[in-house]
Lab assay of single mutants.
Amino acid sequence: DESNKPILLPNESQSFERSVQLLDQIPSYDTHKIAVLYVGEGQSNSELAILSNEHGSYRYTEFLTGLGRLIELKDCQPDKVYLGGLDVCGEDGQFTYCWHDDIMQAVFHIATLMPTKDVDKHRCDKKRHLGNDFVSIVYNDSGEDFKLGTIKGQFNFVHVIVTPLDYECNLVSLQCRKDMEGLVDTSVAKIVSDRNLPFVARQMALHANMASQVHHSRSNPTDIYPSKWIARLRHIKRLRQRICEEAAYSNPSLPLVHPPSHSKAPAQTPAEPTPGYEVGQRKRLISSVEDFTE
């Protein structure tokens, strides 16, 4: 099969070098950035008060330690540790928490760990991170309901609301924008112990962030949302095809390698009803078989 044979790379090609550099910018793992907010007593309706908090309760602090690993920003190499735009020179604080497994990295933009500057009256330095995160974990210690939209931002799609209760338990629920209701189930609340709260809140936030990324990708319907490693695979396959075309153009005697095509017509299947918005969006999480067989 010609399409699977190794090909020689061009010795000097600026377009090839640019493509390789672009490939280096696509990590081999999925990345997520999640905002974390603490809401104190009497702050449920005040964005400024929430963003001005420099610490929270003892249970909130224990919750943070379970979310991930504490890292010092100045020691991080952005090409190895995903920071979601946090500055490593102290502009966004000294520490944050991050978490990773074999296929993804997540960083938490924690408002109480970011510096509260006197010259920044409206807390814009914090909002440029927190307001651009799709998902926020809100530790609501106010005793009042927290409403979506209290923290203004164009991309605040989903809130994971943590409400501490007695007996070391917590109520965990989801809020989302109306255009996200087909992807996020907000109907079920959970009672979770303090011990298990970081794991549950983190998983709910990661799932909500993946759904938000799919939702946000609708602005470019021709580019369905893939995982990062599938995006790398697609980029490599496009690069291979372009090299083959350039080689055939410079030397017409060489065969032009095309991806294999299936001449056999697909079997006719009964027509199915058109899937609704929710089903269609969830299918976009699934990769096409052509990603692996071309």
Rank of each mutant, 00 (worst) to 15 (best):
D30F: 05
F146V: 05
D30I: 04
A248W: 08
A208T: 03
K283L: 09
T186E: 06
F146S: 01
I26T: 09
T31V: 07
V135W: 00
D92E: 12
F16L: 13
P78W: 05
G93L: 13
D185F: 02
S288P: 14
P252R: 09
I26C: 06
A231Y: 07
S217P: 03
P259G: 14
Q25A: 10
K117N: 10
K33T: 13
R238A: 14
S57Q: 01
P252W: 15
A248Q: 07
F292D: 14
V192H: 01
A111H: 03
L23T: 06
F292I: 15
N156Q: 14
K121V: 14
N4A: 14
E41F: 08
H100Q: 14
V214N: 03
F108W: 02
D92H: 07
T31F: 11
R202H: 02
P260E: 15
C76H: 14
I103P: 05
E144D: 09
T150M: 04
N132Y: 07
D75P: 08
V257Y: 10
A201V: 10
H55D: 08
D75E: 10
S263D: 13
A271D: 11
H109C: 03
N140R: 00
E62W: 02
P198M: 01
E246P: 07
V158R: 00
Y60F: 04
R238V: 12
L73V: 10
V188A: 10
C176H: 03
V88Q: 10
S57C: 03
Q14T: 10
P259W: 10
R218S: 08
L254C: 12
H32C: 15
A106I: 14
I191Q: 04
L183Q: 04
I110H: 04
E246D: 12
L113R: 05
R234C: 05
S3L: 07
Q241W: 07
D185G: 08
D24H: 05
G143A: 04
P270G: 11
C76F: 10
A211M: 11
R195D: 12
Y225P: 10
C89S: 13
N53T: 02
L183M: 13
N132G: 15
V184S: 03
E17Q: 13
S57H: 01
P275C: 10
E12M: 09
E144C: 09
V200P: 00
S253H: 14
V36L: 02
E54V: 04
R232V: 05
G276Y: 06
L9D: 12
S28V: 11
L165A: 02
R123G: 13
T274K: 08
K80T: 06
I161S: 02
F108T: 01
L233E: 13
G66S: 03
E91W: 05
V188Q: 07
N220K: 08
V158T: 02
K33R: 09
L51S: 03
F199Q: 03
L285S: 12
G280Y: 04
M204K: 01
D24M: 02
D118H: 13
V119C: 11
R242T: 15
E54I: 04
G56V: 02
G56S: 01
E246T: 06
H55L: 07
N53Q: 02
R242V: 15
R234T: 07
D24Y: 02
N140T: 00
G42H: 12
Q94T: 11
C244W: 14
I243P: 10
L148D: 10
T61V: 07
G85M: 05
P270K: 07
D1S: 11
H216T: 06
M210F: 06
Q175R: 06
G143D: 03
L174Y: 10
I161C: 05
Q241C: 04
L64A: 02
A231W: 10
S227M: 14
F292L: 14
V162F: 00
G68P: 01
